[in-house]
Design a protein around this nucleic acid. Sequence first.
DNA 1: AGAATAGTGTCTCTCAGACAGTATCTT
DNA 2: AAGATACTGTCTGAGAGACACTATTCT
Lengths: 227, 227
Amino acid sequence: MTYPKPAVAVDLALITVFEGKLHCLLMRRHDAETVGGDWAIPGGYVHIEEAIEATARRVLRDKVGMSDVYLEQLFTYGAPARDPRERVISVTHFALVAADQLDQVTAENEDLVLAEIRTDWDGETGGIASAIHPDAGTLTLAFDHAFILGDVVKRLRGKLDYTNVALELLPALFTLRQVQEVYEAILGKQLTKPAFRRKLLDRKSIKPTGKHETGSAFRPAELYTRI
Amino acid sequence: MTYPKPAVAVDLALITVFEGKLHCLLMRRHDAETVGGDWAIPGGYVHIEEAIEATARRVLRDKVGMSDVYLEQLFTYGAPARDPRERVISVTHFALVAADQLDQVTAENEDLVLAEIRTDWDGETGGIASAIHPDAGTLTLAFDHAFILGDVVKRLRGKLDYTNVALELLPALFTLRQVQEVYEAILGKQLTKPAFRRKLLDRKSIKPTGKHETGSAFRPAELYTRI
DNA sequence: AGAATAGTGTCTCTCAGACAGTATCTT
DNA sequence: AAGATACTGTCTGAGAGACACTATTCT
């Protein structure tokens, strides 16, 4: 006996830190009334012979125009009514990207915007997130995507202290101050500089390059790179 | 346009600590030659109007005969050839149960056994696990289930120090020594008693009952319970 | 009484936070 | 030279591991 099958999709939260704030790439939907919102994270159906991560990378390439990013499976969302049109199970991933890369794709594609992610809960409590655009204000998110973005923030907060995922949000060369800004954006709180430096350097996951930043108003900081 | 859809299943790793060792419930397959092994963790297809966790609880009830257990989504496995018969995407969960409960179901059902899970890697490195039965020796696992069990161990090791999941593996009343045994079984290494007691009690997630264990050869330990 | 385990007190070492100080670059 | 930020040294308190000690129960 064969059962009717749910559809399987991959949704992709593209995360970056821009001007000291967590941001996410959103895609305009032209069917807002049927899916419950004007904006959504990019996604696509899993093809019958395609690995799940391959779907994620295809969505990244075809819908966003990027490749070679840090990608991680987050959670699989499958509430029967999460998509009002048909049963869709979403194997959701998140990607971590440096801000300059996302700037480029939003400039080239009218339907892609970068929105700030805000949460009104502390630590790893959990809950929904809201997306705020500098011009348009708070964006209405389709499906369960406000909930998904909340889960992304929660996961990132949890992984910060025992992994190096934060470095994926920075360009190839970066200052220690920039790393601290990424941590502060994700955790939503201030950190103390000396303790942060020590912890980061003790981890042996970055190394100094001897080069320094240019164009700074005052003393330029040394540039570091991933090991 | 409609694409051919993959099937979606939920697989369920039922975990317990028995005689100081991590164990897992396995189900005998009668189609070993087509699925690559004699033993598998229980699973079932997601029905078209059924939430994913509801599938997990249905599998738990219908195939194992249990209810009211700690359940958590682990990962979604979707390699195209993981099931040689058809494309099946598995939203895998794990359940944590006290050993006495699993003892009961294996006694009642011939096709269910409790096998020890062993890993040959340290900490949270990751890798496959093997399943060892007291009489039958090493069991051959179907599909990617050796890999999945490895991921379960990895996840449990990671969650031990910042959650109370370990308490789900114990009966309603337990001694501090039993809690330490659970931690040691999961981590695969010895811990020191005074430090362990302090950390556990400082967490305020268990409380003493005033009762003591009976039938012990020597001084009986106090019984604690979850708060 | 002796054996075995339950449970506790203390020392030390490591590590994170806080603060204050020094170094270096631009205007 | 002044100002701003990069970077560092030191103090302190919290917490984990190691060890030794006391307490309690059964044979």
